[in-house]
């Protein structure tokens, strides 16, 4: 258990080891560690940012979707309204057309009837005159009996 020259040898060895460690071992190792720490920190930050971006984008998409839906609903609503309007309009138009056609038909019928009536009256008058002529032959004085004939015609 003697203190001897070994002490000096160990002291030198110790100094050399510490020097070597300080010069060649410690700096590259610590650099690697610190650089990796920085890398990891950056990566975490980037992922945080990406997550936030994603959230934002999702929010935006949802909003846009909602807007689009609202627009679509509005368009449909408008279309329905327009369709109803069109149907109403057409119905009304048709109705009017019908009434017009019916009215014109009536008028035509009336005119035709009047015409036929007139025709008929004329023919009956002529027939009556002819009949009376035949019955009376000569006795009839067209001049004298014209008023009677007229009366007959009016009665028909």
């Amino acid at each position: 258990m003697n203190i001897n020259a070994t002490l000096i040898g160990q002291l030198i060895a110790f100094i050399v080891f510490v020097w070597f460690c300080m010069k060649y071992v410690w700096p590259p190792l610590l650099n690697a560690i610190e650089e990796r720490q920085k890398k990891i920190a950056d990566g975490l930050e980037a992922s945080d940012r990406a997550e936030k971006d994603l959230e934002l984008a999702q929010e935006k998409a949802t909003e846009q979707l909602k807007e689009a839906k609202a627009q679509a609903a509005e368009i449909i609503e408008q279309a329905k309204k327009r369709a109803n309007q069109l149907v109403d309009e057409e119905t009304q138009k048709g109705q009017a057309e019908r009434e017009k056609i019916i009215a014109s038909g009536y008028a035509e019928i009336e005119a035709e009837r009047n015409r036929a009536k007139e025709e008929l009256r004329k023919q009956v008058a002529a027939l009556a005159v002819i009949g009376a002529e035949r019955i009376l032959q000569r006795e009839i004085d067209a001049q004298a009996h014209n008023d009677i004939v007229e009366k007959l015609v009016a009665e028909l």
Binding site: T6, L7, I8, L11
Partner: peptide
Amino acid sequence: TDLNLPLALGLG
């Protein structure tokens, strides 16, 4: 376990 070595470290 050789006192020389710990002492060398201590003195350093």
